[in-house]
Design a protein around this nucleic acid. Structure first.
Lengths: 107, 107
DNA sequence: TTAATTCATAACCGTTGAGTTATGGATGAG
DNA sequence: CTCATCCATAACTCAACGGTTATGAATTAA
């Protein structure tokens, strides 16, 4: 089994964490403090979520003085896109096979 | 926040469950017994996973005698595709805005 | 230097969830 | 009818995880 989709799915499964990632995608780079503001959870919780996102390769961090700026890395979503395409592909393949069979029976 | 991606991410986050879904995509309809065979877990565990997949709309079941056949419903992956596209879209949008800004500064 | 701010880590707690065994209902076989 | 098979549900256990408060390291301000 592919390891990349696994970590991505696990990381994005949590709503709070996914919301943080979404904000970074929508609005670009943010400090931990800014993210904590409207996250609904405490600052340590946000830091832990950011750590998880970073480990999954979904965000990068940039230190500037005593602030840490986080930004999304959308390229990290590629394994997810690949996985879904593959699943859809399998489906289509089997549909085509069925189509072939029906056509052959039709003759 | 959209509720559809949430359930999908949560449901697909578990490796065992995702493996079952993958098998159904690859090989088409399967009985619970057949799925249990190579799943590595007990039959009740498989039944629970199938229940979760069904509740997420990822599979459908068809009763035939004392067997239950499950099959994947790849259309259920659409919200996931939409979500990833949206995230990538936000990213692209901000890139474009930056591009515009640079072009205007260039004059 | 002292005080305040920003973030990360540690330690802990409660909940969630994936796994198990046990069991029962429904269907098919003999 | 009786027995075996297939699946789902119940009840339980245990680990993982998301949240909290407490604390400390690093940086900026006074």
């Amino acid at each position: 089994m592919a390891a990349a989709p696994d970590l991505l799915f696990r990381t994005l499964a949590d709503p709070t964490r996914r919301a943080i990632f979404e904000r970074l995608c929508r609005e670009g780079e943010q400090t931990v403090g800014a993210l904590t503001m409207r996250s609904g959870v405490s600052q340590p919780a946000v830091s832990k979520h950011l750590g998880a996102l970073k480990q999954a390769g979904l965000v990068r961090d940039r230190h500037e003085g005593r602030q840490t700026h986080y930004s999304a890395r959308p390229g990290a979503l590629n394994p997810l896109i690949d996985w879904t395409s593959q699943m859809a592909g399998f489906w289509q393949k089997r549909l085509d096979a069925l189509d072939d069979l029906l056509k052959r029976m039709d003759q």
